[in-house]
Nucleic acid binder design. Sequence first.
DNA 1: GCCGTTTTCGGCCCGACTGTTTTCAGTCG
Length: 572
Amino acid sequence: MDNSTIANVFDELAELLEFKGENPFRIRAYSQGAKAIRDLDESVADIVADPNRKLSDLAGIGKTLAEKTETLLQSGSLPQLEKLREEVPEVLIQMARVPGLGAKKAAKLQKELDIDSLADLRAACESGSVAKIKGFGEKTAQAILDGLAIAEQAAERIRWAEGDALARSIGRHMESCPAIETMQWAGSYRRGRETIGDLDLLVVASDRNAAMDHLEAYGDRSQTIARGDTKISIRVGKAFQVDMRCVDANQFGAALQYFTGSQAHNVHTRRIAKDKGLKINEYGVFRVDDETQIAGATEEDVYAAIGLPWIAPELREDRNEFKLAAAGELPELITEDDIRGDLHMHTTATDGQNTIREMADAAIARGLKYIAITDHSKRVTMAMGLDADRLRDQWAMIDEIRPEYEGKLVILKGIECDILESGGMDLPDDVLAEADWVLASVHYGQRQPREKITERILGAIENEHVDCIAHPTGRLINRRPPYDVDMDAVMKAAAANGTLMELNANPARLDLNDVHLAAAKKLGIPIVISTDAHTLDGLDVMQYGIKQARRGGLTKADVANTKTFKQFAKLL
DNA sequence: GCCGTTTTCGGCCCGACTGTTTTCAGTCG
């Protein structure tokens, strides 16, 4: 059982306990335990198996959660969870996911009105029976109806790149507001999370009402959810929420820090402040005894006030950033300027839209010094994958054009070779041996059982000609789950065999994810950030990979394609 | 349920906004 499965169990326990009206701090303990395990850069099972280590040494895991984790690892289930699932009606969980309804209101409605489904809930709102319950009213009933409509429109988190496009569009609109002096995006968008649940805009405005009016005038606004003196929330398009907060200039840094989150990171900063006799809120850092403000204008000031250096937003998840910051060991995160090569791209030989020359010229225009041409192998029939003959023809072509690029760009003879369903590589070893760069990837048999898929990938790692595992989990964000693969085993094998691992920068993939990247870094596995470009524009997705790499805490030194070609070649 | 060099008990981040309340609970981030 892997970390995320265990974490999901604790999250579900927390959710179910909330409906039982449990002590909120006990509920939080389960959530925090889930987070601690999910964010861990090593396998919980390994820690349990190690006689020299204890699970309860992990922050947020005490005696009880350690025992439950061991039960899960041994038996695969938890009696407490089974019992709670029986006790809490499924409809309660659905109800609490309706925006505006939480566990308490949902439980009260369900109990008093005997609601069995969301359809029942809608009917109860429409008939007026909800409004008659003590503590509820007409407006609450209407808010629930609105919430139901939103929930039906599947307000799922959007990919970071989509959030980026929306933020830029709203940003352009807001720039024309004369009342706004400063503005900056915060929230999970600023932290670079792979998906964004809403957008958070922070502004300093000479006239707050004018700024809020201006946001409400955004063309695609569908609804205003709330509007107060300092904060406004609107809905854009069908269901996406955008919040704007107005603050004074001397509060901007504190507000930016607060609004950027994550929530867990903020809780941690405030706890540190409290220990120092300080209080942090979105208006600044204050001494508790006399309410004096000691910081707030910039984020650097806020962190300095609690004795820490500024922490990059991508790291603010309350994973290990506080420990690193306190020790002065925060990583200097990779930037797009550090990238010198791109080692995964396709051409017209298979499913790409441009020729080798066109890709090479576009790479030069983007400042790259080396690329690898990595078309599909023959198993990928839909993309007209290459057999040995066609591949050798392509390599002959590369030999032919290389002189034109002498001193400007190194073009590697590569292949994205499929790992076959039955195991083994899609091209014979003697062909792979002629390649400069071999990516191995799974495209078929993605639903095979864990043991089988893991065995296939381990086989590729152990093949001496394979340089790198491409998109190692196969997930497509919001579309397709990762293969059921034992990533702990894959990473250990990659480390042992000197095989590189890809961070595929395509915004739908971003594969490996941030936690995997941190784990790879810990094991010393060099990461290659590649675009998997199928078009010239496809080369521009590198920025998304960089964002993801930063979230994994990667520095220039952790990423192989930041090296000069001469240094990079030593890894092959 | 977790945690600790003020502690093994008694805390646990902090505030905006809404609706329904005549002083605050619920929800959200």
